[in-house]
Amino acid sequence: MADYFDLSGKVALVTGGSRGLGRAMVKALAECGADVIVTSRDAASCAEAVAEVEALGRRGWAIPAHVGRWEAIDELVEAAYAAAGRIDILINNAGNAPAVAKSTDMTETLFDKTVGLNFKGPFRLASLVGERMVAQGSGSIINVSSTGAVHPEPEFAVYAAAKGALNIITKGHALEYGPNVRVNCIMAGPFWTDISKSWREEADKTINSAARRIGRPEEVVTAALYFASDHSSYTTGTVLTVDGGQR
């Protein structure tokens, strides 16, 4: 069965790959044979993630970047192709979810930062990489969204709206870059990561889902590996919910 997730000879770029779900995906990609470019704003954490990739016998590159900024994304793409020569798998994982008590508390700066990192950045990165994937004849783009897009909470409404837009552009880009480039999305529910350390321990008991618990990072990686592998060749434009049956 491991052959279904064989990514030998592939190069992946993972944004927000230095921690949380992104870090778990980076490790899983390398374990399945992929070389991995890791990017986030934290250069030291990127280097740590790359060290894990190299310890698995794969090539890794740490390229720090702020993927909420248009010009930084252009520079990231040039640096990534200069380092690795190609990108076969792009995972748009970076995101943030700042909370405000009410909509009038949302400043223009915070609004732009939230939309920039959660939608504008993934849109621009997928656009640039998608065109190059078309030219090389194949590729897989994986966006990481949130169930907040369909279960929005008032204090996270702008974040939810940006993730909803990411769901929509997944289909748009699948149509634009197909048939040889696939574009899919993982709409993730709550997961235990370093970002969720502030959650109360009781959250596992009170979460309203069929699984009745919060997910573990390793429980999302197989969805990413499926979309990354050639065995998902007939799956594109899809938003896959991984949330433990959230209500």
Rank of each mutant, 00 (worst) to 15 (best):
A165Q: 09
P122E: 07
V129Y: 15
W199M: 01
T104I: 13
A2C: 08
V239Q: 11
I141A: 02
I168Y: 14
W199G: 03
Y234Q: 00
A228T: 09
R213V: 00
L13C: 08
A97R: 14
I37F: 06
I91T: 13
K197N: 11
L117Q: 14
V14M: 14
V221C: 07
A223P: 13
A228Q: 03
R213K: 04
I73K: 07
G189N: 02
S196Q: 08
G17E: 02
N208A: 08
Q246H: 09
M187I: 15
L56H: 04
A28K: 03
L166E: 12
A83G: 03
Y81L: 06
L13H: 05
E202N: 13
M106T: 09
A65S: 07
R58A: 01
W199D: 04
L240G: 08
A44E: 13
A51T: 12
G85D: 06
D74H: 14
L7T: 01
A62K: 03
I63W: 03
F119E: 06
S45V: 04
A149N: 02
V150S: 12
I207H: 01
L110H: 05
E75C: 09
T107E: 12
R182H: 10
N180G: 00
V242F: 10
A72Q: 15
A224N: 10
G245C: 09
A165H: 12
W192R: 07
N118H: 10
A223M: 13
G244A: 15
G164V: 07
V36K: 04
A30R: 06
S40Y: 11
D243N: 12
A203Q: 05
H151Y: 14
E131L: 15
M133G: 09
A97V: 14
I195C: 00
G22I: 07
Q246N: 03
Y226N: 03
V26P: 01
V242R: 07
K197V: 05
S232N: 01
M187Y: 13
V50D: 08
A101N: 15
A203V: 13
A47R: 13
V38Q: 01
N96C: 15
L13Q: 02
T147Q: 11
F123L: 14
F156K: 09
T241A: 13
S45M: 12
V144W: 03
G172C: 03
D112G: 06
I91V: 15
I169P: 02
R23Y: 11
M187P: 10
V11Q: 01
M187H: 10
